[in-house]
């Protein structure tokens, strides 16, 4: 097991180091060649980034590195499964971490496949330090943004969960653009009651306006929105 977590002894720059330890970005390196793995890690450390190194995709899966914002540096050519296979596998299993590919001999089809699957970059070895660092930085930024979005969604989901079934139904109808009168008619309740529910929804969802409420609604996962129609 070559799972090594190493922290920079000389944080050249603390450019993106949040106070929360769990939010500290991590560079995940997967390469079967120990010399390359070591050298890339060294480069990352010299740029003040924490690294986790793995000799194979199997080792990566066995580790718990998914909670932190991260960018992966993958070797395309590895024994067993290639970096491209790993990319597909990660996407399929919902771990959508940004990936920078490093390869000894990249050809166009390979590059196209990787980029289409959402890779940050596809770089050939030997790679210029700044190029690699830029790509990794971009990757980490992307992951941070992704994580922020995810957090908002999670928050919105929690807020939605605080609604009663009737409130959810009213939210569903309001988001569809239906007027209070129509909603009251459909649900067989008075317009006053609808207005009451609506006020509760606005409060619980912490929406400052109808526009804000609809945006929050749109950020929710589709299946969850569907359950409100019932």
């Amino acid at each position: 097991m070559t799972h090594e977590l190493e922290t920079s002894q000389n944080p050249a720059s603390g450019w993106m180091r949040p106070k929360d330890e769990a939010e500290q970005p991590l560079v995940i390196i997967v390469d079967d060649d120990p010399a390359v793995r070591e050298a890339v890690q060294e480069l990352m450390l010299s740029a003040g980034m924490e690294c986790a190194c793995f000799a194979s995709p199997q080792e990566l899966f066995a580790a718990s590195v998914w909670e932190r914002p991260a960018c992966l540096i993958l070797d395309v050519r590895m024994p067993g499964s290639s970096g491209l296979d790993l990319q597909l596998h990660l996407t399929a299993s919902g771990r959508r971490k940004p990936i920078v590919f490093l390869t000894g001999h990249g050809d166009i089809p390979m590059t196209v496949q990787a980029m289409k699957a959402g890779a940050i970059d596809f770089l050939t070895k030997p790679v210029r330090d700044q190029t690699l660092l830029d790509a990794v930085t971009a990757g980490i930024r992307k992951d941070l943004a992704q994580r922020a979005d995810e957090r908002i969604v999670e928050r919105n989901v929690r807020r939605l969960e605080s609604l009663s079934p009737r409130e959810r139904r009213v939210l569903y109808e309001v988001a569809r653009g239906r007027a209070n009168k129509q909603i009251a008619f459909d649900l067989g309740i008075s317009e006053v009651t609808v207005k009451l529910h609506r006020a509760n929804v606005m409060r619980k969802m912490q929406a400052s306006s109808i526009g804000d409420l609809v945006r929050t609604w749109e950020s929710l996962p589709a299946p969850m929105r569907e359950t409100c129609a019932a």
Partner: peptide, 12 residues
């Protein structure tokens, strides 16, 4: 492979 390592190490 060793060349890539050398280059990365040199940069570091």
């Amino acid at each position: 492979q060793p060349l890539a390592a050398i280059v990365a190490n040199s940069h570091a």
